[in-house]
Simulated scan of single mutants.
Amino acid sequence: MTTVLVRADASAAIGTGHVMRCLAVAEVLRGQGCRIQFAMAESTPAIDARLAAAGIGRIMVPGPIGDAGDLAATRAALRRDGAAAVMIDGYGFGDDYRAGLKASGARVLAWDDLADGPPLHADLVVNPAPQAERLPYDRLAPGAGLLLGPAHVPFRREIRLAAARPRPPMAERRTLLLTFGGSDPLGLTGPVLEGLAAERPEGCRILAVVGGSNPRVADLLGLAERLEAPVTVEVDSTRMGAVMAGSGLAVSAGGGTQGELALMAVPTLLVVIADNQAPASAGSAALGWCEAVDGRGPDAVPLIVAAAMRLWRDPDRRRAMAEKAMALPLDGEGAVRIAQALLSGLR
């Protein structure tokens, strides 16, 4: 049995996106008979529960992320488990760490977003962003196999299955979906939820999907109870495919969720909440299926609410956005392609 180690972290501060996109590929690898082990210096109870539910192991390595102790423990785990390959995803891993991981002899798959960090020391590089093919990976990862562009967006099995089912027409999608990822590090969910509820048009239902790693879960559940509008908060939803299928508009943080929304052809207002999300969000907006707004400034909440209400009140615009999404080169098989590329180098 082939063992693959995954080195990624999650916390309220750094979010859960690194782990979740690795998990999408890990699901495929496990389905092909591989044993998967996550090695983490930081995690959250919600992420631990997700990994356990997927039948995936998790060990903790000493922090801080990317230091010598982390590397030593990760290399020890590779030896102990006899891992043939390792996926690494995160911004805290410097040149020495990556070189040390490559020197272990395992096949290295590195996730990247901006090509603005140290050399990747990888056999494979994955960046599913629209602009990825223009980035200097020939310099950062000479000789590596490059898995670039939207064909390599890693969709979870749940989303792949939902995308294959018929979806209701736009006129019947009465839900406005609000989601800021697994932890919402900027704390935007509550203020934006209040703003949307105050401006909500007749017949619009607002659903906020909140990750279990969000430290404000209790406050958000209480807020939903106090609001008079039809507002619901779901924590760690296990039905995101169905939720997206019924959404006439999504207000979402950039990152992994934006690919899922595109596959599900949901008109979307992308909110940039981290610097690394800006290029991919702008690239997606240029394709016409979404719009993007900066969520990092002091006036972010009113800007987000105003843009969302403008889109909701323009069903023709949202239908056109959905049509643009359906024309994208997305077939839901990105995670499968990544897994196949990783395993093909082991044969």
Rank of each mutant, 00 (worst) to 15 (best):
227 L>S: 01
273 I>K: 07
294 D>S: 11
245 A>C: 10
263 L>A: 09
314 D>M: 02
316 D>G: 15
202 E>H: 12
239 R>E: 15
315 P>D: 06
277 Q>E: 15
238 T>W: 05
274 A>I: 11
248 G>P: 01
277 Q>A: 07
282 A>Y: 11
250 A>Y: 05
227 L>M: 09
250 A>S: 12
208 A>C: 11
309 M>I: 15
301 V>F: 08
290 C>H: 03
322 A>S: 13
200 R>E: 08
236 D>L: 02
286 A>D: 11
231 V>F: 00
211 G>W: 05
264 M>E: 00
225 E>V: 04
302 P>H: 15
198 A>N: 11
310 R>L: 00
229 A>N: 01
230 P>A: 01
274 A>L: 02
318 R>E: 04
275 D>K: 13
257 T>D: 03
288 G>A: 13
261 L>W: 04
281 S>L: 04
283 G>F: 02
311 L>G: 01
215 P>H: 07
283 G>E: 11
261 L>Y: 12
204 C>Q: 14
319 R>L: 01
239 R>Q: 15
296 R>S: 10
315 P>L: 06
264 M>V: 00
201 P>I: 11
208 A>L: 09
277 Q>P: 03
303 L>T: 15
258 Q>C: 14
222 G>Q: 11
281 S>F: 01
251 V>L: 12
247 S>R: 02
295 G>M: 10
201 P>E: 13
215 P>N: 11
299 D>W: 08
290 C>T: 14
220 L>R: 07
207 L>I: 13
254 G>Y: 05
255 G>K: 00
232 T>A: 13
240 M>F: 09
203 G>L: 08
208 A>F: 05
280 A>I: 02
303 L>D: 15
202 E>T: 14
269 L>K: 04
236 D>N: 13
208 A>V: 10
253 A>P: 09
198 A>I: 06
222 G>Y: 06
228 E>F: 02
245 A>H: 12
250 A>W: 00
211 G>E: 04
283 G>C: 10
